[in-house]
C-alpha cells in the first residue's frame, strides 16, 4: 500500500531524515515510534509532500508520489492528520468536515457526516461549534474525521494520543481499531508505547532520523533493552 525507501529530508540546512525506509501493507496499522525530535513528524510531512524529500522513493497504491503536490497525493487516497491538528479555528465542525470532502473512491469505505458522527459521538453534539472553541480531545477527533471525509485508503496519523487525557486516549485507540476494521491502512507516529501496543500490528523505531528497529509489536514487547535505549529516558 505505502512504501518508503531511503528517504532524506532537510529543514533549511538541518538534515532531519537520513535514509528512512518503511512500509505499511493494506489493512495494517503500523506505528512509528521515537522520542521528541527523532524525525517522526518530518517523515510524515515528507511522505505527504509537504516537505519535498531531497532523496528517496515514496510509493503509494502502485504509484510513485515523492514529486507530487500534496493535493494530488491526497486525491490518490492518502490522508494526513497533522500533529498540531491544524483545525480551521474559525470554521464550524461541519465546515471543517466540508473542506475535507472528496469524491468517494471505488473499493474504499465512503464516509459521510453521519457515519463519522457514529464513529466520534462527541462531535455529533458540536456540529455548529467553531473549531477554535473545542477541547484538545475534540479537536483531535475532528482532525481525523476531516481527513476521513476525503475517503482515504491509508491514513498518516501524527501523534494521535499527544496531550490527551487518559480516557480520551482510550477512545482514540477504539477509533483507530474501528478504522482498521473498515480495511484502512494506518501509519501512526507515537511516543506512547502503551497506546501503540493497543492499536498497532507492527512498529518501527526511529532515532536521529534513522530507522533503528522494524518488527512486530510482540518482538518489541519482548526486547526490554531496545525500549530502554530508544524510548526510555
Amino acid at each position: 500500500m505505502l512504501s518508503v525507501k531511503n528517504l532524506h529530508a532537510y529543514y533549511g540546512r538541518a538534515h532531519i531524515l537520513q535514509g528512512v525506509s518503511l512500509e505499511a501493507k493494506a489493512g495494517e496499522v503500523v506505528a512509528l515510534l521515537g522520542r521528541n525530535g527523532a524525525g517522526k513528524s518530518t517523515a510524515m510531512k515528507a511522505i505527504m509532500g509537504l516537505l519535498p524529500p531531497a532523496e528517496g522513493e515514496v510509493s503509494f497504491a502502485g504509484r510513485r508520489i515523492e514529486r507530487l503536490a500534496p493535493y494530488r497525493i491526497a486525491r490518490l487516497g492518502l490522508g494526513y492528520v497533522p500533529e498540531e491538528r491544524r483545525i480551521f479555528t474559525e470554521l464550524t465542525v461541519l465546515e471543517n468536515l466540508e473542506v475535507g470532502r472528496q469524491m468517494p473512491r471505488p473499493g474504499v469505505p465512503a464516509w459521510t457526516e453521519t457515519r463519522l458522527f457514529a464513529l466520534f459521538p462527541n462531535l455529533a453534539r458540536l456540529r455548529e461549534r467553531p473549531g477554535g472553541l473545542m477541547s484538545g480531545g475534540e479537536q483531535q477527533m475532528l482532525t481525523i474525521a476531516r481527513t476521513l471525509m476525503g475517503n482515504p485508503s491509508c491514513v498518516l496519523l501524527d501523534e494521535p494520543s499527544e496531550g490527551l487525557a487518559p480516557v480520551v486516549v482510550e477512545q482514540m485507540a477504539h477509533s483507530i481499531r474501528a478504522l482498521k476494521a473498515e480495511g484502512l491502512s494506518v501509519l501512526l507516529s507515537e511516543q506512547n508505547l502503551h497506546f501503540s501496543r493497543a492499536v498497532a500490528d507492527r512498529a518501527y523505531i526511529i532515532e536521529k532520523g534513522q530507522i533503528r528497529f522494524g518488527g512486530s509489536m510482540a518482538e518489541l514487547a519482548a526486547d526490554a533493552s531496545l525500549r530502554e535505549q530508544y524510548l526510555s529516558v
Binding site: 505527504m48 509537504l50 503536490a69 500534496p70 493535493y71 491526497a74 486525491r75 494526513y80 497533522p82 491544524r86 480551521f88 479555528t89 474559525e90 470554521l91 465546515e95 471543517n96 466540508e98 473542506v99 475535507g100 472528496q102 476531516r146 481527513t147 471525509m149 476525503g150
Partner: peptide
C-alpha cells in the same frame, strides 16, 4: 468554507486534496 480555510492554512487545505 474553502476560502476561509485557505485564509487560515493554505497548506492544510492542499493536504486535504483541494487544488489551490
Amino acid at each position: 468554507a474553502l476560502v476561509r480555510a485557505a485564509t487560515q492554512d493554505r497548506e492544510m487545505v492542499g493536504a486535504l486534496g483541494v487544488d489551490q
